[in-house]
């Protein structure tokens, strides 16, 4: 898997980029992800109103209604049950959703890669213990675990990170373990050992860089999962707490007005959908680009 992917002479990552570039859906996903990340970063500049500012005289207005709190004078996407601007709340909610997706995946990767590498490289009892814990995590529905952890720690965005990481690492550990099991038998690992390198150095310098491809794909595919999990938790009232906007708790709040003001729940729903969809397209494209066997 690791050898001979490109006789052409360009470096591996250049080759991956060339393959990714040709994949239109993946490029679409990448562009959307970049735009959304930019939006999340500059949300205060783009928002017509303070996402927390209420106007009780203008509650649940449809899109396009005149507004006193918005700088442009219009609720572009309507207002919520406290008269807050939904557009501003969605823009600020992107910060929550994207940071949940990215930070939880960073934690998942840190724990999962460490555990997986230890299990795969050392085998034996270490492997046995780590993988049985992972099996336990796999044996129950994730949401049940999230709810348990959130109950134990109390609802807050930091605890959402922790809950997602505590449960999500198992999948990453399995993936990395299987890669390490294969890579540790490679001759260059033997050669590295014959050079007198320590185990830590061999794992960090010679094994892990060779499983970057699957790890990157797993992270990209994990981000939408984490965004959805945060939305589910917020929907259950266990995630990000009001008044901080997150797409999940906006849908949660909107559900009471589903019949009378359907657009209220539609906007955060669309935001989640586009984000998740884009990350999935990007992840799919990365998987194809990183795996030369799928090359046409």
């Amino acid at each position: 898997m690791a050898q001979g992917w490109n006789p052409g002479g360009t470096s591996f990552w250049k080759d991956v980029w060339l393959r990714l570039e040709k994949n239109k859906p993946a490029m679409f996903g990448l562009v959307v992800v970049i735009i959304f990340s930019a939006v999340a970063i500059i949300a205060p500049l783009l928002s017509p109103a303070d996402p927390l500012k209420t106007d009780l005289s203008n509650r649940l207005k449809p899109p396009g209604s005149p507004s006193e709190i918005c700088s442009n004078g219009v609720y572009i996407l309507g207002s919520d049950e406290f008269g807050r601007d939904i557009l501003s709340r969605i823009l600020f909610g992107a910060r929550v959703s994207l940071s949940v997706g990215i930070i939880s995946q960073v934690l998942v990767t840190a724990i999962g890669v460490t555990m997986g590498a230890l299990a795969g490289y050392y085998g034996g009892k270490v492997d046995m213990i780590i993988m049985r814990i992972a099996d336990i995590l796999f044996a129950f529905p994730d949401l049940l675990f999230y709810i348990g952890v959130m109950f134990a720690l109390g609802p807050s965005i930091y605890n959402v990170f922790i809950a997602l990481a505590l449960i999500g690492w198992a999948g990453m550990a399995r993936l990395v373990r299987s890669q390490v099991l294969y890579l540790r038998e490679m001759e260059y690992v033997e050669a590295a050992r014959a050079q007198g390198l320590s185990d830590a150095r061999i794992i960090l310098r010679h094994i892990l860089p060779n499983c970057m491809g699957p790890i990157i794909v797993s992270v990209t595919m994990g981000i939408p999962g984490a965004i959805l999990a945060e939305a589910s938790l917020s929907f259950l009232g266990l995630g990000v707490q009001p008044p901080t906007p997150s797409w999940g708790n906006m849908i949660y709040a909107a559900r009471s007005y589903m019949l009378t003001n359907p657009w209220y729940s539609v906007w955060p729903g669309i935001a989640i959908m586009i984000t998740v969809f884009s990350f999935n397209l990007l992840g799919d494209g990365l998987r194809d680009a990183l795996d030369p066997r799928l090359k046409r």
């Binding site: 690791a2 050898q3 001979g4 591996f12 490679m186 001759e187 260059y188 310098r205 860089p209 060779n210």
Partner: peptide, 10 residues
């Protein structure tokens, strides 16, 4: 095996 004794990513 000189083909596999070198790490492909460095």
């Amino acid at each position: 095996e000189p083909m596999t004794s070198l790490n492909p990513v460095f």
